[in-house]
Amino acid sequence: MRTSKPITVTLGKQQALLEDRLQSGAYESASEVIRAGLRALDREEAALSQIMRAKIREAIDDPRPDVTAADVFARLRARHAEGQ
C-alpha cells in the first residue's frame, strides 16, 4: 500500500536545477531530488538547532556577572549618541 500521495510543486527557477540533476544521472526521478532536498534541509535545521543549543548553554554557563537591562540600554544610548 502506498504511504505517500502525489503532489504538484511549482519550482520556478529551481526547475532547471532539478532537470540538471536528472540529466546528470545522479537521480532517477524528480521525487528523488525533492526527497534529497528535504533530507538536506532536515540536516541543516538539526545542525543549526545544535549550534543554537550550544550557544545558549555557553551563555547560561558564562561565569561573568549578569548585566542589567538598564545598563544595556544606557550603553546603547551612549553608543547611539556617539554616532550622531
Rank of each mutant, 00 (worst) to 15 (best):
M1D: 10
R2Q: 10
R2A: 09
T3V: 07
K5H: 09
K5P: 04
K5F: 07
K5R: 05
K5E: 12
I7V: 03
I7S: 05
I7N: 06
V9N: 03
V9W: 06
T10L: 10
L11I: 01
L11H: 07
L11D: 00
Q14R: 13
Q14L: 10
Q15A: 09
Q15Y: 07
A16S: 11
A16L: 04
A16H: 06
A16C: 05
A16E: 14
L17Y: 12
L17H: 11
L18A: 07
L18F: 13
E19Y: 02
D20C: 01
D20M: 04
R21A: 00
R21P: 00
R21Y: 00
Q23N: 05
Q23T: 01
Q23S: 03
A26K: 11
Y27C: 01
Y27T: 00
E28L: 10
S29R: 08
S29V: 02
S29N: 04
S29C: 04
S29Q: 05
A30G: 02
A30T: 00
S31L: 04
S31P: 00
E32G: 10
E32T: 09
V33R: 01
I34M: 08
R35D: 15
G37M: 13
G37C: 11
L38R: 15
L38V: 13
R39I: 07
A40G: 05
L41P: 03
D42I: 09
D42N: 08
D42C: 06
D42P: 02
E44R: 14
E45C: 07
E45A: 09
E45R: 15
A46M: 14
L48Q: 15
L48I: 06
L48P: 04
I51L: 14
I51V: 12
I51Q: 15
M52H: 11
M52G: 07
R53C: 05
R53T: 09
K55W: 06
K55A: 15
K55V: 08
K55S: 11
K55R: 15
E58N: 09
E58C: 04
A59M: 12
A59R: 14
A59V: 02
D62G: 02
P63S: 04
P63M: 08
P63L: 04
R64P: 00
D66W: 06
V67G: 02
A69I: 13
A70Q: 14
V72M: 11
F73V: 13
A74F: 00
L76P: 01
L76G: 03
L76S: 07
R77N: 10
R77H: 11
R79F: 09
R79D: 06
A81I: 07
A81C: 03
Q84Y: 11
Q84G: 12
Q84S: 10
